[in-house]
Design a protein around this nucleic acid. Structure first.
Lengths: 105, 105
DNA sequence: TCATTATGCAACCATATGGTTGCATGTCAA
DNA sequence: TTGACATGCAACCATATGGTTGCATAATGA
């Protein structure tokens, strides 16, 4: 779970996920064409995405195909975001009251 | 948006959000009691959460009350996670097929 | 076979990050 | 007023992070 949050923290890595979202199963070379960074730089980012299992790779000959794995994102939603979503309106209400109190004082 | 992702990347900061989820409107001192870290360490983490607007502060005399703001989390869900959710089943299917092809070869 | 292509591995570097300590400031209460 | 309490600010340090370069390895195709 922590690996997923950390992997999502970098904008370049989110960009890579976007690229795979647009076209799944791209090679490292494909992805490099869209990123202004050395191949090794891109490879490092992809490695972190793999560790977080946000990306799954399939070898085909000498080519490494990268596929999006939506499961970790779903888990973050279910186990983490969902929790805050449920209490969202209440939290907003508490916050408004606190700000009102501050203005009164 | 990037600030939010970055703020969520650290487990201590997610812990702070959890603490505020359990009890909203805590002071820095309150939060420090639950964290095994110096007060200044906690304050630094809270500062990042404030920048990301995940936490909103209200001054009351010499006390700084911290409140959860659920809006950024909701935005991440709507603008980012929701996108991948829609194509989730398709992405999983594509992934399975790719893995099958690999096994065949 | 051999040049080319796709990728991996390792060293290296600059900067960001997460933590500490020490001291300063502002508020409360006796 | 004064001491105690809640917090802020700044310097400092170790390590993590994001990037590079150079070289190694493996598959493809002429």
């Amino acid at each position: 779970m922590n690996n997923v949050f950390k992997a999502l923290a970098d904008p370049h890595r989110r960009e890579l996920l976007d690229l795979l979202y647009k076209e799944n199963g791209q090679t490292l070379g494909d992805l490099c064409k869209c990123m202004s960074m050395s191949r090794q730089g891109v490879a490092k980012h992809l490695a972190l995405l793999e560790v977080a299992q946000l990306v799954v790779v399939v070898w085909q000959g000498r080519e490494k195909l990268h596929y999006l794995n939506p499961v970790p994102i779903q888990q973050i939603h279910d186990r983490w975001i969902g929790k805050f979503e449920g209490e969202r309106l209440q939290a907003l209400d508490t916050l408004r009251k606190a700000l009102d109190d501050q203005n009164d004082a």
